Structures are given as C-alpha cells and as structure tokens.
Simulated assay, not measured.
Amino acid sequence: MSVIRCKVCGMTRPEDALLAADLGADAIGVIFYSGSKRYVSPAQAERVVRALPPFVTAVGLMVNMAADEIGAILQQVPLDVLQFHGDESPAFCRQFGRPYIKAVRVGAREHIQAAADAYADARALLFDAAVAGQYGGTGQTFDWQMLPEHLNSPWILSGGLNPDNITQAIVQTRAMAVDIASGVESSPGIKDAAKMAALMEGIKRAELQLPQ
C-alpha cells in the first residue's frame, strides 16, 4: 500500500504539535516569517519542537531572511529541515547544512519544471497556490491539472488542503506527500483536534484508492 507523508504546518503550541504526531503526522512546521498569522519566535518554536517524539521531522519555514538570522535560529531550535518560501537562490538554500524544501507558487505549468531544474538538490519541491503578495498559507488551491505526469524531483502538494478535499487531492494528483496548515485550524495557528483527525482519515482513504 502507498504511504502518504503528511506535514502539519503553522504550529504555535507544543500540545498541537504533539497531537499531530500522535495522529500520524510525519512532520510539523513552525513559521519564522513575521508577515504570517502563524509566526513564532525562536523561543516559542523551540518549545514546540522539543515537545515532539523521536522520528517526527521538525521543519522551519523562512521567507527571504538574512543568512545570519537563520543561523541564529538554528543555534537555538533543533530543526531537521528548512523550508524556503521566498525568492531564495539555490546557493542560499543549501548553505545551512540542512536538507531543504523549496516552495513554488504555481501560476503556470512552466514554473514547476523551472523550479525542478534550478533546485535540483532540494529535498523536495512544495507546490502552493500563487497569490499576489503572499508567500503561502493562503488556504487556496491551485489548478492541479498543471502538475506534470512525471517529475524527477520529489514533491509535496500544498495549498487549500483540508479534510473535505484531501482524499480527492491525493487521488487526482498522485501526491505522495501533503502539507496542511489552515485546513486543520480553529483559528490561525491554533489546530483543531477533530479536523486533524479527519484529515488523517482522509489520507488513509486515499491510500486505499491509489494503485498498489
């Protein structure tokens, strides 16, 4: 059976991160972008990440931050993976001694292949909706038909995913990893236990429908 990997992003409270892990999330994300409604300080992020059980990946989301700012965060917060949502170059992304994910705001099919070529050493590409002036977390989907049938780079589906559409999204796109934030919240940064549980059930339903 196919196993779909799931990251729940925008964590602000240790108890939410721990519950996501207990429900089966493979990774959680903390956001260091001050323009986000889910922003956390390094001290707050440290509390969230240190609450995680072993083998749950901690991902730190950055948007156009200075290298020394990221370095200072890494000295305090035990992050496993960095996720870049801004205009960071491949050379910038790879300098921190961590695997990295590069977010791609998908407005056209050619954006996907261009990113795959440019960020060939990324741990994965993350495909999100292109919304003017915003760097993710919009709660909007994009046209999944723009996704290529074959892409040599590992990739993650994001943007507007929630318990109501997660099964369809995975079955239609054949995504092997998904990233959710607003779709499992009661308010920005506060996760809803029932929504997270429903999302995980939706992922399990999708796994049963995928070709074996």
Rank of each mutant, 00 (worst) to 15 (best):
S2L: 14
R5M: 11
R5S: 14
C6M: 13
C6T: 15
K7W: 05
K7V: 06
V8M: 15
V8G: 02
V8Y: 14
C9R: 12
M11C: 12
R13N: 05
P14L: 07
A17Q: 05
A20M: 09
A20W: 01
A21Q: 14
D22L: 12
L23F: 13
A27W: 10
V30F: 07
Y33K: 01
K37T: 01
R38D: 03
P42Q: 04
Q44W: 00
E46K: 15
A51W: 04
V56D: 07
V56Y: 04
A58T: 07
A58W: 00
V59W: 11
V59T: 11
L61W: 01
L61F: 03
M62R: 00
N64E: 11
N64P: 06
N64A: 09
N64R: 07
A67W: 05
A67N: 05
I73C: 10
L74G: 07
V77I: 10
L79D: 13
H85Q: 06
G86L: 12
G86R: 13
E88P: 09
E88Y: 10
E88T: 12
P90I: 08
A91I: 00
F92Q: 02
F92W: 10
F96V: 07
F96W: 03
R98Y: 06
P99H: 06
Y100H: 08
I101N: 01
I101W: 14
V106C: 07
A108C: 14
R109N: 01
I112P: 09
A114L: 10
A114D: 14
A115Q: 06
A115G: 08
A118D: 08
Y119H: 09
R123M: 14
R123N: 00
A124E: 05
A124T: 07
L126F: 06
T138E: 02
G139W: 05
T141M: 06
T141H: 01
F142R: 03
F142H: 03
F142W: 02
Q145D: 15
L147G: 11
L151G: 08
S153M: 15
W155L: 13
I156H: 01
G159A: 05
G160K: 04
L161F: 12
N162W: 03
D164N: 13
I170D: 02
I170K: 09
Q172C: 01
T173F: 02
T173S: 15
T173Q: 00
R174T: 11
R174M: 10
A175S: 12
M176R: 15
I180C: 04
G183E: 05
E185P: 08
S186Y: 01
S187K: 15
K191Y: 10
K191C: 07
K191R: 08
A194N: 13
A197W: 00
A198C: 08
A198L: 12
E201A: 15
G202R: 08
G202N: 12
K204N: 04
E207L: 13
E207S: 09
Q209G: 02
L210T: 08
L210R: 12
L210W: 11
Q212V: 11
